[in-house]
């Protein structure tokens, strides 16, 4: 990602596109660094090259993904399997 002063215009208001992608049944991946504003007004920062933002809201490390969605997905699979079988 490129940021900072533009070499030609000298402007420091250079903004480039940040790539974001979503994994099916998984986290939202955002090119870092990321500052995440929480509902209580506080912020947490991750300066990793890519940050995995939790979308299942069950992560013990929320707002960052800790792979807890795998359990939820499996439970849903198990539940739907039972429904189909009954």
């Amino acid at each position: 990602m490129h940021s900072g002063r533009d070499a030609i215009t000298g402007s420091d208001r250079v903004r480039t596109t940040r790539r974001v992608w979503a994994e099916e049944d998984g986290p939202l991946l955002v090119e870092g660094p990321v500052e995440f504003r929480l509902a209580d007004g506080t912020s947490v920062v991750s300066d990793r090259f890519v940050v995995a933002v939790c979308t299942c809201r069950r992560s013990a490390a929320y707002p960052w993904c800790d792979t807890t969605h795998r359990h939820l997905q499996r439970r849903q699979d198990a539940d739907s399997g039972r429904t189909e079988g009954s």
Binding site: A52, W64, C65
Partner: peptide, 14 residues
């Protein structure tokens, strides 16, 4: 490694 590898997993797999 909990947080780092949650990211690395996605990057390595995909």
């Amino acid at each position: 490694h909990v947080e780092a590898d949650a990211v690395h997993e996605q990057v390595v797999r995909h």
